[in-house]
Design a protein around this nucleic acid. Structure first.
Lengths: 220, 220
DNA sequence: CGAGTTCTTGACAGTGATCAAGCGACGTGG
DNA sequence: CCACGTCGCTTGATCACTGTCAAGAACTCG
């Protein structure tokens, strides 16, 4: 959004993303109960966010990659309500939320941008609710793969090949399935020639078949 | 938030919520694909929001009551991505989003308020993901009842009695269950003396038992 | 009062969970 | 460089929860 800003404006916006933080693979960027101070823009690396119930069950609420924002959960109560864990070595921009708000007041395009990011997250979660509430294991995994490869492609990676950064268990948690079911479903897709799987490596041979599984609508 | 505002400020804030709209039971406040222009604050009545998949499956994404805000889904793309349906005759304040943004820039407390509302929705949906991904039918329904009665109580209604505004099917859709399962689970709670159910009327006899079902953690 | 909707309940089926065992990949240290 | 241990993945057998199908009852509203 480099339109209509003078040098001073740009400097101040630049400052917002000046602070960097590195997180090692397996490390926590923030966790449940931490005081909320900042949003984080992922520069490199890959994260999962998850919540845990009192009796220890874990629910992965999302996987985030470069360019995506995490930490929005903390705004409402000034405390984070989920954990953000790096699935590979990562670097983030630390954006103190008071600064985000201050600059938002000055720059309507930034304000709108922030609102869109939050709205996008709400809409994404609506989609996950549909997935978890209405879809069967195969549909869930097909949707998951299509979403992942689409986001990677938007970042310049292959449209048909990817390396999963998460375990079967984490995929299962996200999709409301057990790891065995995830594994079996991968195997099934593989047997049907839709994908090729070798551990974390996935090659999508027939994306149309995946789309059809995800969305088995009327065929005229 | 009536602190530090002069008369002119208050008039402008008042203007934001001046426009009213009535929606009859069963009526749509907005639906998927509608252009997004406004957020809506519910004054009276009860809504459900839902998304539909291409092949016609419906997922209820939330139930909203007086004081709650709907329409946040539309911000990201300028089009609504869900339907908002009145489950009883309702009245809402129409808040044009451009005005919300303009006033947010002027009044930091309003800005913060808007951010919290969006964050709260994100956190709520995280909780639903946990529900849908990890919990069994009884846990889901217990959580649902506790949440509903808590929100009603915050509005001055009974802590132990409520009238459901939605069908078993809508509850089921929200909780990722079929209506028969919802009905059976109600019956089971009733047989166990935890609640008394008669159609839409529910009396919570033993809230502690519900909490224990919802959260069956270690008991020392 | 009657038609249609909503709810309850039963019998049965199916999807995915659970339990269990073995395999394969990876990393560390000898 | 290889051995070993750990962790993650796959696959099989069985089970349980919830879904599906069906019928009838209860309630609502015109």
């Amino acid at each position: 959004m480099p339109v209509g800003f003078n040098t001073d404006d740009l400097m101040r916006l630049d400052e917002l993303v000046a602070t960097r933080k590195k997180v090692k693979q397996g490390g926590l960027l923030f966790s449940e109960g931490d005081a909320f101070t900042s949003l984080y823009a992922i520069r490199t690396g890959f994260f999962k966010t998850c919540v845990t119930s009192e009796d220890g069950r874990e629910q992965v609420t999302g996987f985030q990659m470069a360019g995506e924002i995490i930490g929005l959960d903390g705004i409402v109560s000034d405390f984070h309500s989920c954990n953000a864990i790096a699935l590979e070595d990562a670097e983030v921009c630390v954006m103190p939320f008071v600064n985000v708000e201050e600059l938002s007041r000055e720059f309507p395009v930034l304000q709108r941008h922030v609102h869109k990011i939050m709205s996008r997250e709400i809409v994404r979660e609506n989609g996950i609710m549909m997935l978890l509430g209405n879809m069967r294991a195969e549909e869930r995994l097909a949707a998951f793969l299509l979403n992942l490869v689409q986001r990677l492609h938007a970042r310049g990676f292959s449209q048909s090949e990817l390396i999963l950064r998460m375990t079967r268990e984490e995929i299962g948690s996200y999709l409301g399935l057990k790891l065995e079911t995830v594994s079996r479903t991968f195997s099934k897709f593989s047997e049907e020639g839709i994908i090729e799987v070798k551990q974390r490596y996935v090659h999508i041979i027939d994306p149309e078949a995946l789309k059809k599984i995800f969305n088995p609508q009327v065929c005229y």
